[in-house]
């Protein structure tokens, strides 16, 4: 429990030696105690925080990069970003979290992060999904035990997904997912009526497998 919610839009992170926190640059609001901030090379998973050279190289190429700062020392840091809602997700180590880099506010440095090419997950279809939904071809995956603070427009709600329970999500409202989920793009004729604003392509994300999908209360991107 690194993060405690102060308001729906601000979280407080406890920093201690061995319990560093990585956060998006510019997200620090206030700090108490002896905490130092330094940039992390190469964004998520770069530098000393796992991922390695390959990950940071890949990042440079595909643009799944948001500058991160590491908070070290001992004290407490308030984080918030542009007035967006913040959701804290606890990872117990059993399943990874997939989230867009620009939705990541902060996470425990103990979590290992990697950049995943969507084509690895679902072959060509995965890559197509990224391209179609405007999420890009890459996503950030966090694994291990720890907490993650995720940004959203209007807050999120979690929908459990299991073998017999498929969930369909508006691509614009999709935020993140936990676990081994399959996210497919599907087009539906009648969908045009339900989704998107005006002329947007009528696509939907069909989520299946075992895990949880996090959806925001808005169809606006950050």
């Amino acid at each position: 429990m690194t993060f405690t919610t102060v308001t729906s839009k601000v979280v407080l992170a406890q920093v201690a030696p061995g319990r560093e926190v990585l956060a998006r640059r510019g997200a620090m609001l206030a700090v108490t105690g002896r905490v130092t901030f330094s940039p992390v090379a190469g964004g998520p998973g770069g530098g000393a925080y796992g991922g390695g050279l390959a990950a940071s190289l890949a990042r440079g190429v595909q643009g799944e990069a948001v500058a991160l700062m590491v908070a070290e020392g001992s004290g407490a840091v308030h984080y918030g970003f542009h007035g967006h809602h913040v959701t804290v997700i606890e990872l117990d180590g059993s399943r990874p979290l997939s989230v867009e880099a620009d939705r990541l506010l902060a996470h425990d440095a103990s979590l290992s992060s990697s950049v995943v090419f969507l084509g690895q997950q679902g072959g060509l279809r995965g890559a197509v999904r990224g391209a179609v939904t405007g999420q890009g071809m890459f996503t950030t995956q966090l694994s291990g035990r720890g907490s993650v603070a995720v940004l959203s427009h209007g807050g999120t709600f979690a929908l459990p997904v299991s073998g017999g329970r498929q969930v369909v999500v508006d691509p614009q409202a999709y935020v993140a997912h936990e676990g081994d989920l399959r996210v497919d793009v599907a087009a539906a004729v009648s969908w045009r009526d339900a989704v998107g604003r005006g002329s947007g392509e009528a696509v939907q994300l069909r989520v299946s497998g075992e895990g949880t999908v996090h959806v925001q209360a808005s169809e606006e991107k950050l």
Binding site: R165, V168, A173, V213
Partner: peptide, 16 residues
């Protein structure tokens, strides 16, 4: 309202 659906599960149809 058109476009207000953010997620659903089950057999649901949307018709203009």
């Amino acid at each position: 309202r058109t476009g207000s659906m953010v997620a659903y599960e089950g057999e649901v149809t949307f018709k203009h």
